[in-house]
């Protein structure tokens, strides 16, 4: 079951087309990565899902129902451009934003207490927002995004402004939200984090979805049949392996160890590769090379020049 179905969205601004026929399905209880270079239309799409901007064409369904204003209470949104009222007290501010999402005051208090304790920021309750560092403010923003336990969470570049320790913490919390049952849309440039937490991705480029699918499957699809191998006891090197269906990409000698990368044709199975390696020397290391999301991203985006 999909929590969100986006069907053929088109959005025009006066001088350019921000989105063209964009369709996406976001499964329940999964992390969905929304990728794309700057200006591709990610933020526009996110704003349309949040009903901040309108669409010119297309439909969005939230749990099978046409998206309507009442749904905003079931969505949590952490925008890329985020801030707080600088002159307000932290507690007041958090209470206000929680109640804005439909929680009662008592519920808000209860939830905030839990989260403030969990994040070790309970002493900040009476401090002014402007006294906090950017990272501290980000924590508060994260809390008020998830406080109403929304079914759909949208994070736009959530890691910007966090130090490495807090980035790890944030990542864990995002995955906990998924375990709780939420679906998460995750927009970022940080490909490493995409590989770590995303189940599915969509790549938007020049206002169009150019790639979409399961992360593991995409890696499988984009793999180039390459293997990193380490052979011991192989004084002659790997030269003998070169053939019509197998190529040595690189090779280096390290003491008695030969390290190298092989590229094979499609019909050559992994077992066949191992069999040939055994003839050559003693296998110390063997690993299939899968493309990183970064490679897939760059490959797809650079293939299509920016309009």
């Amino acid at each position: 079951m999909n929590i969100l179905e986006v069907e053929g969205i088109t959005k025009d601004y006066s001088n350019h087309r921000a989105l063209e026929d964009v369709s996406l399905n976001i499964p329940e209880q999964s992390v969905f990565g929304l990728l794309g270079p700057n200006g591709a239309g990610k933020t526009t799409l996110i704003r349309i899902i949040n009903q901040i901007s309108s669409m010119d064409k297309g439909n969005i369904y939230f749990k099978g129902e046409k998206l309507r204003p009442q749904h905003v209470d079931r969505i949590g949104y952490l925008p890329e451009e985020r801030g707080l009222y600088r002159k307000m007290k932290v507690g007041e501010m958090a209470l206000y934003l929680a109640q804005l999402k439909g929680l009662s005051r008592a519920q808000s208090m209860e939830q905030l207490e839990y989260w403030f304790n969990k994040f070790n920021i309970a002493d900040w309750w009476y401090r002014k927002v402007e006294e906090l560092s950017k990272g501290m403010q980000q924590k508060i923003q994260f809390i008020v995004t998830i406080i109403h336990e929304p079914e759909l969470l949208i994070f736009d570049e959530p890691f910007s402004g966090f130090d490495p320790i807090n980035q790890v913490m944030l990542k864990e919390e995002i995955l906990k939200q998924k375990d709780r049952g939420a679906a998460i849309i995750f927009s970022t440039h940080n490909m490493a984090s995409v590989e770590e937490i995303c189940d599915n991705i969509a790549l938007i480029h020049n206002s169009k979805v150019i790639l979409q699918g399961d992360v593991e499957q995409l890696k499988e699809d984009y793999k180039t049949n390459e293997y990193d191998v380490e052979l011991g006891n192989c004084p002659a090197g790997m030269a003998s392996l070169n053939g019509h269906d197998m190529k040595i990409v690189r090779e280096e000698q390290q003491d008695d160890l030969v390290k190298g990368r092989l590229r094979v044709n499609n019909e050559v199975t992994t077992n066949e590769v191992i069999r040939r390696l055994i003839n050559c020397g003693e296998i110390r290391g063997f690993k299939e090379v899968l493309p990183s999301m970064n490679d897939i991203f760059i490959k797809n985006v650079s293939e299509i020049p920016k309009a």
């Binding site: 204003p69 209470d73 969505i75 925008p79 451009e81 985020r82 009222y85 923003q141």
Partner: peptide, 17 residues
């Protein structure tokens, strides 16, 4: 203030502009 402090996008995701 709401615009420059960038809180506005959080708020308009809950209420209409």
């Amino acid at each position: 203030e709401e615009k420059t402090s960038r809180i506005v996008e959080v708020i308009v995701s809950s209420v209409k502009p």
